Amino acid sequence: MRPEFAPHASAPPPEARGARRRGSPAGDIALAVLVLVSDVVAVAALTFFSALSAWEEAGMFGDSSPREESPSFPDEGLLIAYGVVVALLLLTAYGFVRTGRPVTASAQILAAVAVCAVVAYGAAAAQRDAPPAPVPASSGGANGHQCHSGGDNHECRDSGG
Score class of each variant (00 low, 15 high):
A11F: 07
L89M: 13
P7G: 03
D129A: 15
A30S: 13
P136Q: 10
A26H: 07
V35H: 02
T47H: 05
P134L: 11
L90P: 01
S149P: 00
Q146M: 07
H8D: 13
R17Q: 13
T47G: 07
R128G: 00
A11S: 11
A54T: 04
G141P: 02
G122M: 01
R128D: 08
M60A: 15
S53T: 07
E57I: 02
G151N: 10
A107I: 01
V37D: 12
A19Y: 07
Q146H: 12
Y82M: 03
A81F: 03
N153K: 13
D63S: 15
G27C: 05
A32S: 12
C147F: 05
G23C: 08
Q127W: 14
A11G: 02
G144E: 06
F5V: 14
S70N: 03
S65Q: 13
D75E: 09
F48G: 04
S159W: 11
W55I: 02
G100P: 10
Q127G: 11
V43N: 01
E15H: 14
S70A: 14
L36S: 14
P74S: 03
P71C: 02
E155K: 08
L34Q: 14
G83A: 05
S53R: 13
S149W: 04
V118L: 14
A111V: 02
V86R: 03
I80Q: 13
Q127P: 01
A81P: 02
E155I: 11
G100K: 09
Y94L: 14
A26K: 08
S139D: 14
P7L: 06
F73V: 02
G18P: 06
D75R: 05
